[in-house]
C-alpha cells in the first residue's frame, strides 16, 4: 500500500514535476523546514533593504533565467518599504531590459524597459518554458512566497495566531534551496530529477540553482549558499507582499486607536449600567456613584 502510494507520488511528480509544487508537504519523511530569523516577522517587522537588494541581484543573475516574475514592475523597486532603489536606479534597471512592443507602424519591435513596465518573462509562453525545461514550466515567482507552505499541525497553528508566525513561505523556499542532497539508498530518482529532502515527493525538476560564490555581493555579506537562499527568499516575500511594511505600520496605529476606543467604550458602558446593576443601593437611597462599581 505504502509502496503503491510512493510509486503514484513519484509518477505524479515525474509527470508534472516542480510545476505542481504542492503547497503542503505531506510526506511523512519530509523534514520540517527550519524557522529562520526574518527582519520582517512580527508586528514591527520591516524588510531589510540590503537583503532585498542582494535578493534582487540573485533573482536577476540566477532565477530570472527560468522564472518569470510578471506581476512585479520596475517602478516597484523604488516603492517605499521595498529594496529602496532610487527612481533613477530603478529606471536604469528597467533600461537594461528589452521589452516587446509595437512601433508606430504597428510592426513588432523591441525597446528599452521603462519604470511602468513589468519584468519580461524569460520564455515567450508556457509551452516554450515547458519545452526548455524538460516538460515542466518553472512557476512564476510573483506570489511564490505566499503560495508555498508546510503543515504546522496542531497545536502549533493555534499558537501561530499569537506569535504571528507568517513566514512559512520564505522558510520553505530557503530550506528547499539548501535541501539538495544525494538520494537515499533505494530511492528511484527519475531521469532529469533531483533529490531534495524538503520537496514533497523529493523529486524536483529544478537543478540546484545556487552555489557559493556565484553572485557577487558588494556589501560584504557572505557569498554562501545559505546566505543566497535566505536573501532570495526575503526578496520573494517582498515581491509577493510589497505593502507589508505599510500594513504593519498602519496596523499598529489602528490597534492603538481601537484599544483606546474599546477602553473608553468599556467605561462608558460601566457608567451607563451602574444604576441598573446597583438597584439595591438606589432603593436604599444611596448614590450608586459612591458605591463600588
Amino acid at each position: 500500500m505504502k509502496m503503491q502510494r510512493t510509486i503514484i507520488a513519484l509518477a505524479l511528480a515525474g509527470c508534472v514535476g516542480s510545476s505542481i509544487a504542492p503547497a503542503v508537504a505531506q510526506e511523512h519523511d519530509t523534514p520540517t523546514p527550519p524557522m529562520l530569523k526574518w527582519s520582517f516577522s512580527g508586528p514591527f517587522g520591516r524588510y531589510d533593504q540590503g537583503q532585498l537588494q542582494r535578493g534582487f541581484k540573485i533573482y536577476k543573475e540566477v532565477c530570472a533565467a527560468c522564472h518569470s516574475i510578471q506581476m512585479l514592475a520596475f517602478r516597484n523597486l523604488a516603492d517605499p518599504g521595498g529594496p529602496g532603489f532610487s527612481e533613477a536606479q530603478a529606471a536604469a534597471v528597467a533600461a537594461d531590459y528589452k521589452i516587446k512592443d509595437l512601433d508606430d507602424k504597428g510592426e513588432p519591435t523591441e525597446r528599452p524597459g521603462r519604470l511602468a513596465d513589468t519584468f519580461p518573462p524569460p520564455f515567450a509562453n508556457e509551452l516554450v518554458a515547458k519545452a526548455a525545461n524538460g516538460g515542466v514550466a518553472p512557476p512564476d515567482m510573483s506570489t511564490l512566497a505566499k503560495a508555498r507552505t508546510f503543515e504546522r499541525g496542531f497545536p502549533w497553528f493555534v499558537f501561530d495566531t499569537i506569535t504571528q508566525y507568517q513566514e512559512q513561505g520564505p522558510d520553505y523556499i530557503a530550506a528547499l534551496l539548501n535541501g539538495y542532497e544525494e538520494p537515499p539508498k533505494g530511492f528511484q530518482l527519475p531521469q532529469g530529477g533531483h533529490y531534495n529532502k524538503y520537496f514533497p515527493g523529493h523529486n524536483i525538476a529544478m537543478s540546484p540553482p545556487l552555489q557559493a560564490g556565484q553572485v557577487t555581493f558588494d556589501d560584504g555579506a557572505p557569498q554562501t549558499q545559505e546566505q543566497y537562499s535566505k536573501d532570495i527568499s526575503a526578496f520573494l516575500m517582498w515581491a509577493a507582499e510589497p505593502h507589508m511594511v505599510a500594513r504593519k505600520r498602519i496596523g499598529l496605529q489602528v490597534m492603538i486607536v481601537l484599544i483606546v476606543l474599546a477602553g473608553l467604550m468599556y467605561f462608558t458602558k460601566k457608567k451607563v449600567w451602574h444604576e441598573v446593576e446597583k438597584p439595591r443601593e438606589i432603593a436604599r437611597g444611596q448614590d450608586p456613584k459612591k458605591t463600588a462599581a
Binding site: P22, A23, V24, K146, A147, T149, Q164, K248, G251
Partner: peptide
C-alpha cells in the same frame, strides 16, 4: 487583517 492576513487562507490559492 494587519498581522496574520493569510492565516485563515490556503497557500494554494496564491497559485
Amino acid at each position: 487583517v494587519f498581522y496574520i492576513p493569510n492565516f485563515l487562507g490556503h497557500a494554494d490559492n496564491y497559485i
